[in-house]
């Protein structure tokens, strides 16, 4: 019993030191997590500034970092940018909505039926590795240079990437859960409602994120290559006027928007699955 008392005293002394050491390390890590990426960004901005400034004699094309920052402010303040953004993203909204409305049910269904899955898996495998842009000229020839052509391209870009993760999700629903529901005389409707759908939620969100990323690519690529409207038009006009700073600025803003949208979806997913875990 003496040893037990001794050990209590000993660990009692050791604990604050251990905790302090851990906290110190934690503080260093937290600082590094903020300072290091900012540092990398700052070094890149500096190199960019110096590189561009050194080249002013030869090339007027390359803007300096400060030109770029100025252009971001200018673009944000211009009515034209917001107009272009609406033109582009109204098509994105509709196209992505179509991809989601078609892709989620399709993915869930295919994942639960082995035969159907076998029949379509070849197409899905191909769709994932093929540049969807090869079909863009076809869409334009058929639908003309219209709003609907853009919507169709965006939907085609997004669709496979909504379907594939969703299908994986519904295909990997734990069999034990399905058996359990059946053992309580649950109908196949109940299996879908109570087990397959909730279990596929993380996978569906995965599909939403991947689908949105590709839909966004579709939106940009058609405007940059075949139908010069919206954001694509803005970039091409700036390019024609050798206004590289504006090209960089618009690019930056659209990229930032894309990253923000992905982060929002990720947060929604984390929140939802967190709730899910807490409930079970």
């Amino acid at each position: 019993m003496l040893t037990a008392a001794g050990s209590a005293i000993e660990t009692g002394v050791a604990q604050p030191a251990l905790l302090a050491k851990w906290r110190r390390r934690r503080r260093v890590e937290r600082t590094a997590a903020v300072v290091l990426p900012l540092g990398v960004g700052a070094v890149c901005a500096l190199l960019w500034q110096m590189g561009a400034a050194a080249r002013t004699g030869g090339s007027v094309l390359l803007p300096t970092f400060t030109d770029f920052v100025g252009a971001v402010v200018r673009v944000l303040a211009s009515v034209r940018f917001w107009h272009a953004l609406w033109t582009s993203e109204s098509a994105l909204l509709l196209g992505f909505a179509i991809a989601v409305a078609a892709g989620i049910p399709l993915g869930l269904y295919v994942g639960r039926h082995r035969t159907v899955d076998g029949l379509v898996s070849g197409y899905l495998d191909i769709a994932v590795v093929t540049p969807t842009a090869v079909f863009m000229p076809l869409v334009i020839v058929v639908l003309g240079p219209t709003f609907w052509a853009r919507v169709a391209v965006i939907a085609i870009f997004g669709l496979p990437f909504v379907v594939v993760p969703t299908r994986t999700g519904s295909a990997t629903v734990p069999g034990a859960l399905v058996s359990m529901t059946r053992s309580y005389c649950g109908s196949s409707g109940a299996v879908w409602r109570e087990v397959v759908l909730p279990a596929s939620v993380p996978a569906i969100f995965n599909g939403l994120r991947q689908g949105l990323a590709h839909a966004l690519t579709g939106m940009v690529i058609i405007e940059l290559t075949f139908l010069a409207v919206g954001i694509g038009r803005l970039i091409q006009d700036a390019q024609a006027k050798f206004d590289a700073a504006s090209v960089f600025a618009v690019t930056f803003l659209i990229v930032a928007q894309g990253v923000a949208m992905m982060a929002l979806l990720q947060r929604a997913q984390d929140g939802l699955s967190g709730q899910w875990r807490a409930r079970s």
Binding site: A213, I254, V259, M262
Partner: peptide, 10 residues
């Protein structure tokens, strides 16, 4: 996360 195609003009 970003659409890589955006960076092509750059």
């Amino acid at each position: 996360a970003a659409p890589s195609i955006m960076l092509v003009p750059v």
